[in-house]
Amino acid sequence: MESSAIRHGVRRAIAACQNTSKRRALHQSSRCLATPAQGEGIKAAAPIRFSSNRNQFSKGRPRAQLIEDDDAGSARRGRDGRFGDQRLLRNIRIIPASPSYFTATPRMTDDMLHLSQLLRRYQTLPVLPPGEAPRVAWKTRQQYKIEVLEPVRAKDYNMILTLLKRLNYIHRSLIPAEVTQTLEKYKRLVQPHLNKPKPIEIDQYGRARAVGKRKTSTAAVFLVEGDGQCLINNKSLTNYFGRLHDRECALWALKATERLNKYNVWALVRGGGLTGQAEAITLGVGKALLAHEPDLKPALRKAGVLTRDPRRVERKKPGKLKARKMPAWVKR
């Protein structure tokens, strides 16, 4: 009887060892029972309040209570603010001061955006007719590049100049102060067109004194009403200039306006050759004649006697016959 019971128990043990599901259940049950189900001093942890859960817990609570709770939490963290205000840091978003902070040319880009914004804001204002805008000498690209300390391409600076010229066409009586201040920022310190020459005045003897220059020649010309006499360095016109071309060139301003027999010319000339001296006298006579009769300005300008000729003679180079003429043996 005992032997049969022992055989039955051994068979059950072998069957349990061969069946993995029963062995796992037995192991798990033994592992769970290894720790006592109820122990002394064991308590549940407090719930974690994440930032996403804060709004869930704050629903239905008054705002004053929420602020009071946050202040209490800050006081618990420390009055000296070592750890900072976590609530404030969660709501802060650091934004660059300039919208083009991360570009290679932030200052130039900001200027272009500012000018575009002004043009969009005031583009409906009346503008001046074409060609009647005030003359302005804008800063060069090199000057602007030194001012902003950034690499400025010619294409980008041309876009800035286009915006400036368009804003400069706004009517003077309606142009806003904001636009005027912005335009002043891009103007040169010295405006060349504002430097006007001193007007030639007629003295008490009826003489108008003007100075003319050509190449290295300088002529001081005195023009007074008379019968057509002409003295150059205390010599007559025919004695001083042997060539007919130089004589006609010296008095071309009077001949072009048909004033040869109405004025007397006295000139003091020095430097250069005869041709340069004759052309210097031409410019001086034209300026002096304009002081007597300002209405002749269109005719004198058309005759080309009010503008100095800046051309100079090109000097001879070593090894050449003239300025650019090569010797004959070189051509061979």
Rank of each mutant, 00 (worst) to 15 (best):
R172K: 05
S4L: 15
A210G: 01
T218K: 04
Q181E: 14
R11N: 08
S217V: 04
I202C: 01
L283C: 06
L268H: 05
T103M: 10
R82C: 08
Q117D: 12
K165S: 07
T103G: 09
R141W: 03
V269W: 01
P96Y: 04
K198G: 04
R7P: 00
L113T: 09
G276V: 06
M326K: 12
C17M: 10
P298E: 08
I6K: 10
S29M: 07
I146E: 14
R61H: 10
F222Y: 12
R77A: 13
V265F: 00
E40S: 09
K165H: 10
L251V: 15
R107H: 14
Q18W: 07
L237K: 00
R308A: 14
Q38H: 05
N234Q: 14
P36T: 12
A299P: 00
P318T: 10
Q56K: 11
N195T: 08
L66R: 07
S173A: 14
V285A: 03
G78M: 06
A133M: 02
N195Y: 07
G276Y: 03
R120F: 04
G286M: 03
E2G: 08
R61E: 10
V152E: 02
R82S: 13
A154V: 13
K302C: 05
G84H: 07
F83K: 08
R31Q: 12
I67A: 14
G78S: 08
A37L: 15
N91K: 13
I48R: 11
R61D: 04
G73N: 06
L300T: 02
V285L: 04
T238E: 15
G78C: 08
R23L: 15
E68I: 05
L283F: 09
A46F: 13
L290P: 02
R135H: 11
H27F: 09
E314W: 04
T105A: 06
P192I: 09
D295T: 13
E147W: 03
V190C: 08
D111G: 01
S58C: 10
L183K: 02
V330P: 00
R214N: 07
A278S: 14
D69P: 00
E178W: 04
Q117P: 00
K235S: 14
V179I: 15
I175S: 02
A303G: 03
L89G: 05
A219I: 02
S100D: 09
K322G: 14
R82F: 09
D295H: 12
M112G: 04
T103S: 15
Q123G: 14
T35H: 04
V10S: 02
L194A: 10
Y157D: 00
S236M: 09
P310Y: 06
I160Y: 01
T20V: 11
T162S: 12
N168I: 02
L254H: 01
G212R: 00
L115S: 08
A13G: 10
L163K: 06
R243P: 02
L164C: 05
P126D: 12
G212Y: 01
W138E: 04
R107M: 14
L283N: 02
L296A: 04
A97I: 10
G212C: 03
N53K: 11
K187C: 15
A154H: 08
A15C: 07
N168L: 09
P294H: 09
A72S: 10
A323P: 02
L306S: 05
E279F: 03
R121Q: 12
A13N: 07
R311N: 11
Q229L: 06
